[in-house]
Design a protein around this nucleic acid. Structure first.
Lengths: 219, 219
DNA sequence: ACACTATACGAACGATCGTGCGTACAATCA
DNA sequence: TGATTGTACGCACGATCGTTCGTATAGTGT
């Protein structure tokens, strides 16, 4: 599985560098606003070099989505995996997501919030890839919640899909409003809503402390 | 205040026709993706005609935002004003917003959800105008809720700004996911969440019937 | 009557877009 | 060694972008 071909290794490294700039640009300008020429300038490579590495703009967009997915997983999912499955991991995921948005892991805020709204009405492989990535995230949240239900950490009447919808709605709204208004206040709203929601679902108050602890405004 | 100059009357009529197409295109392609050439084709006027009517692309974008605001007010705000202030009007606003999104009053779903995510990280007059429009909507919801608190229709401990944040978050999420996945299921999630939220706030169950009544899937 | 203003258009501007071609170089493999 | 493949570049193509200019027409004022 490991690439040993020196040419491909070099190419992969180049793609990594270019994509690192691409996801940040796209989080601000969108995946359509991401132009090959300006991307080439930002990454200090030639325009035709970028074209060679990705073949077409659509393939560049798809590669950017995959690169963004990796950065998101490393920033939100992986750190939360130190917590045991169930309600504790859910809290870690939600708290980690707020930090991911607040700390601008992508220059323009959450990459997927920006590009999903851009492509939701444009059918094609780019939209499909974005929908798949969002379903992965929402599905992971729902699966974690389902485990919490099975463990009795929250009420048995709770619908995991319903919870995942509400949680991602609150997080996305906090992201967009924070970026739009250059304020951390929306994260406070999101924290309060998420804590209330989980308490109403029957979650133990002590486990929610991490979420309830509001340090966004101080930071 | 009424325009009597025949030239201006004709110009305003032309602007109205062009903007009618502009807001629908922008709800799909975004305000940057909205190009003067394609807008001219859609409205069956010349490209330079559009340029004459609006002066610059930025002024066209600002005019489109104002036109979208008018369509939104006529579609969501005005119909809800038949209900008395307070919780009843809030329910009418939320139910009306879901219908506004579900019925695709704009071709690509909510105009403001699409363009806000596009411009939230791009400082300038366009972003400011979008932020102002969104604040108007969120503020109207908060003011209505504050009235409901004062009337004792919901608990005195309830924060109107907090409620407005949560409500708009749920509505926006339902819109984006419905457009993205071409399904009405997200509206069901949003209804359930909004009803739960208002019931938890102390609202009378009977007033919430309109919101709880799920006909989105049947439609 | 005349000057002036507000649409509306065709034509063209320079700029940027995505893409393809030809070339050069390095790495792989027969 | 020679043929092939993957990167990387310069260059140029046709298309489209926002904008400007000149012109024509219709409505408004003096």
């Amino acid at each position: 599985m490991i690439e040993t071909d020196g040419r491909r290794v070099r190419g992969d490294a180049s793609r990594r560098v270019v994509l690192d700039h691409a996801v940040d640009i796209a989080s601000v300008e969108g995946l359509d606003g991401l132009s090959i020429g300006r991307l080439a300038d930002a990454a200090h490579v030639s325009k035709s070099g970028v074209a060679t590495l990705f073949g077409s703009k659509e393939r560049l967009q798809l590669a950017a989505i995959e690169a963004a997915r990796l950065r998101f997983v490393a920033s939100v999912i992986e750190p939360a995996r130190v917590e045991p499955r169930g309600i504790r991991r859910i809290v870690a995921l939600l708290d980690g997501w707020i930090a991911y948005s607040r700390d601008r892991v992508f220059t323009g805020g959450c990459f997927f919030a920006a590009t999903a709204a851009e492509f939701d009405a444009k059918p094609g492989s780019v939209r499909d890839a974005l929908a798949a990535a969002l379903d992965d995230w929402s599905g992971y949240l729902a699966a974690s919640f389902r485990y919490a239900v099975a463990q009795g950490e929250v009420g048995a009447d709770q619908d995991p899909e319903q919870f995942a919808f509400e949680a991602t709605a609150l997080l996305d709204a906090a992201n967009t409003r924070s970026v739009m208004g250059d304020s951390n206040q929306p994260y406070v709203f999101a924290r309060r809503a998420l804590v209330s929601r989980l308490r109403a679902a029957g979650a133990d108050a002590a486990v929610l402390a991490r979420l309830a602890d509001v340090d966004d405004l101080a930071a």
